[in-house]
């Protein structure tokens, strides 16, 4: 199986889906001739032309709103927000329109569209090229939110998202783009939306995470094995719809749960996971649920020591796991 990078998995999924279905098209800022500022749409313009790889004006609300209109008509648009930080002007279209279209029309109109957005820090992106935005959308029924961590999941989930009948927010951690590589089959496959995956089996502490911090958890687990701490790692992969059974199973496995995400602690998705466990598996717990998350400051600063302080890393995850293990 070929080994490819996380961003190549994005490109391959887009390319193969566009080859498979003529209704699939891409739109966004710089996605065409330039192939995207991260090169996620590299080569698509050459293969599919300006009509299906559309360089839009610099207008996030229109990128989302036009994609909504086209999807309601019956197309399969994949809209790119250049950075998740810039999704805010499109918030009204995504939340008031895309998420509610099916419900408000009593199932007669719906929006099969994907909105891709690179999120997350650790790339010297400062306040406005580093944010995690999932908590802003997680409480909006009608949307699906996918946050893969590996190239295999990226490709399989992006294909599922494009084929899905509802709007999917597909959040790609930009630090993962070239850092994370993995085996990806050449033949067509999909990964179902709404299914978490155990990425490592263990007995002492369960870590629940997604995106870049999932890799920090795996790294921490590998190192802690040498100390005799066995870590169970669950990758949520999709946060809406949430794989509740997998979370509860992973909780029961060890009785100690650490939830890790880069989004801010307060209002972050970890609170939802924690509440789910408390309500459904309280008597399975051997320690209080622990959350490790981005600090409650407005966004990630630019200067390296400040960025480093904000970011999580394997060391911080290791410390938190160790504390839980010793509880």
């Amino acid at each position: 199986m070929p080994v490819i990078s996380y961003i190549d998995a994005v490109t391959q999924a887009l390319q193969e889906e566009m080859q498979r279905d003529e209704k699939v098209f891409v739109l966004g800022e710089d996605v065409g001739v330039r192939g995207g500022v991260f090169r996620a749409t590299d080569g698509l313009y050459k293969e599919f032309g300006a009509e299906r790889v559309i360089d839009t004006p610099l207008t996030e609300s229109a990128i989302a709103g036009v994609a909504i209109g086209a999807s309601v008509y019956g197309m399969r648009p994949v809209a790119e927000m250049q950075f998740a930080d810039f999704i805010m002007p499109a918030y009204n279209q995504i939340v008031s329109e895309a998420a509610k279209m099916r419900y408000r029309s009593n199932n007669t109109w719906y929006c099969p569209l994907v909105i891709r957005a690179p999120y997350g820090g650790g790339v010297h992106g400062a306040l406005y090229h580093s944010q995690s935005v999932e908590k802003l959308f997680a409480g909006v029924p009608g949307l699906k939110i996918v946050m893969p961590s590996t190239p295999y999941d990226v490709k399989g989930l992006l294909k599922s998202a494009i084929r899905d009948e509802d709007p999917v927010l597909f959040l790609e951690h930009k630090r993962c783009y070239r850092l994370i590589k993995g085996e990806v089959p050449t033949e067509d496959y999909t990964v179902p939306i709404g299914e978490a995956e155990v990425k490592r089996e263990g007995d002492d502490v369960t870590v629940i995470s997604y995106g870049l911090t999932l890799h920090f958890a795996l790294k921490a687990a590998e190192e802690l094995e040498k100390e005799g701490i066995s870590v169970h790692v669950l990758d949520l992969r999709t946060i809406i719809p949430l794989d509740k059974e997998a979370i509860l199973e992973a909780t029961v496995k060890t009785g100690k749960v650490l939830i890790v995400h880069e989004d801010n602690l307060t209002g972050g998705f970890g609170g939802e996971v924690s509440a789910l466990i408390s309500e459904n598996a309280f008597f399975e717990l051997d320690a209080p649920i622990r959350r490790l998350a981005g600090p409650d400051v407005p966004a990630m600063p630019y200067s390296p020591p400040l960025e480093k302080e904000f970011m999580l890393n394997p060391e911080k995850v290791k410390t938190a796991i160790r504390e839980l293990a010793e509880f």
Binding site: S61, A62, A64, V66, A67, G69, A70, V72, S96
Partner: peptide
């Protein structure tokens, strides 16, 4: 918001 949907339909 509906203006953009009309544009999207026209694009389609």
């Amino acid at each position: 918001t509906q203006l953009l949907h009309a544009v999207g339909v026209a694009l389609a």
